[in-house]
Each structure stands twice: as C-alpha cells, then as structure tokens.
C-alpha cells in the first residue's frame, strides 16, 4: 500500500535549529511496516530538517519550495490531489499530531482532510493492513493506556501519537541513497482550501516572550469524615466496605458483568 508521510517545518525545542520532528520519524517507522518504499512530502522554504527523514527510512522525498511565511496548505493539498488522481494513487497519509517550533495548533491534517475530502484518524500508535483488501486497522491511543482499534476504508489520513514505536535510527548512507525530488510551487495547481484557518488568530496579534504560568495545584475533592472511619471491623466487613466504596465512586466494577 502506497504511503506518504507529511513532513513539517520543525525546529528543535532546545537549539531552535531546523530538525526532523520525532513524531514524523515515528510515522516513517509505521509507514515502513506497510510500504517497502515509503515516500515523503515537505512543503516549505528549506528541506534542511526534513531531508533527515531519508536517513530514518524514507526512500523518496518530494520537496515543494515555497517562500518564507507562505501558507503551505494549498501546495500540500494540490500535490496530494495530483497524486490521488494519478496512476498508483497513495492509500495512506501520515502526519505528526502537532507541529514543533511553529504555531503548534495541530490543525493542518484536519484542514487537509477537509480539502481532500478524506477521513482522518487521530493519535495512531499502531497500523496494519486489514483482512479485507482496501482496509486498514489503526490503534488509537486513549487515556489510561486504553487503545481504540478502528478498521477504516482506504484512503485515509492518520496522525501519529508519541506512544507509537520509537523511530528507526538515522543512517547517513540511507540518507545519501534516498531520492530527493524538488518541485516548484507554481507548477502545482493549488487546491481550493479554507486557507485562513491555518493561522490560529483572527486579525492582528502581538507575539511576545513566553511567561511561565503556574498550573493549578491538584488537591483532592473529598475530605475525611467520621462516618467513613471504621475502627476494628472484621476483615470480611472491611473488604466489603472497600469494594463498596470503589464501586460507589465508579473507580472499578468487580464481578461477572
């Protein structure tokens, strides 16, 4: 199944230099399980960070060069639309769940899904082909270690969660062997998108240095009361009280149901 990994313009959170986002490196790992030759797509002014993706297991990378500060969404949508209409269309598009070093809203995959009219699944941690041809089984990460296993019809867009398997190690030779294809932005027909949505703000806003704000203190909601103090009950009675308390407060439910 042909897979395309979307690579964002990411900056290292410590040094601020362009690098490959870890989520996207994990996405390449997931794609390599499905596709022998996973492809990448990067739209932006430079491919300095994204080209490292070839070293993590991509076999080819398409780079569409745009000017600094330009919205990449029309170019991404246009490129993918071309690919979907061509022969051997891609079946799966993988992205990281949030960007790094930019506005970090995580909305680009959703706008892309809207523009391409494809279903989108969030927070994938494992992906494998379904039993029926043209389907895919995606495990989504949920709170408290739970997973949601969704069978979905292809083609689909999926965002990758940080709990996905760690990325393949970087190999310099693999990066040199990978094929880098450059395209000019004006050669790609821009798809109609609701492009203003990529920016998280309406009108003007000022950007200022970040100020750390303390989070709320976590305190417990309930207090002790004498009615809940049991001095020297029989062990069986104590066990019954504990299970009743757990079930009353909806922590766990024990039994056959």
């Amino acid at each position: 199944m042909k897979t395309i990994v979307l690579l964002s313009e990411a900056n290292d959170p410590i040094s601020g230099r362009p690098h490959l986002s870890r989520l996207e490196a994990q996405a390449i790992g997931l794609a390599a399980n499905l596709d022998k030759t996973p492809q990448g797509l990067h739209v932006g002014p430079s491919e300095e960070g994204a080209s490292a993706a070839l070293g993590h297991g991509l076999s080819g990378l398409d780079v569409v060069e745009t000017s600094v500060g330009e919205d990449p969404l029309p170019a991404i949508a246009g490129f993918l639309k071309n690919a979907l209409n061509g022969n051997e269309p891609p079946a799966l598009f993988l992205c990281g769940r949030r960007g790094e070093g930019g506005l970090e809203t995580g909305i680009v995959p959703y706008l892309l899904a809207e523009a391409l009219d494809l279903p989108i699944l969030a927070d994938a941690v494992a992906i494998r082909p379904g039993e029926v041809q043209g389907t895919l089984v995606v495990d989504q990460a949920m709170a408290k270690g739970a997973r949601r296993r969704v069978t979905v019809r292809l083609p689909v867009i999926a965002t990758v969660h940080a709990l996905a398997p760690p990325p393949q190690p970087f190999a310099y030779g693999r990066m040199r062997r990978g094929e880098l294809r450059r395209h000019r932005a004006d050669m790609i027909p821009a798809a109609a998108t609701s492009a203003e949505s990529t920016t998280p703000v309406v009108g003007s806003h000022e950007e200022r240095p970040h100020r750390a704000r303390p989070k709320l203190m976590r305190t417990s909601g309930t207090s002790a009361g004498s009615h809940n103090l049991h001095v020297g009950p029989e062990p069986d009675e104590a066990a019954r009280l504990i299970l009743a308390y757990l079930e009353e407060n909806g922590i766990r439910r024990y039994g056959n149901d």
Partner: peptide, 14 residues
C-alpha cells in the same frame, strides 16, 4: 486568552 507557541519560547494573547 494566552497560548504558548514556538516550543514555549513565545506566546500570543488576544
């Protein structure tokens, strides 16, 4: 409303 951007280096408020 204030949110952090650029990996917590900057913030925007509106």
């Amino acid at each position: 409303a204030v949110r952090a951007i650029r990996s917590g280096r900057a913030e925007i408020g509106l």
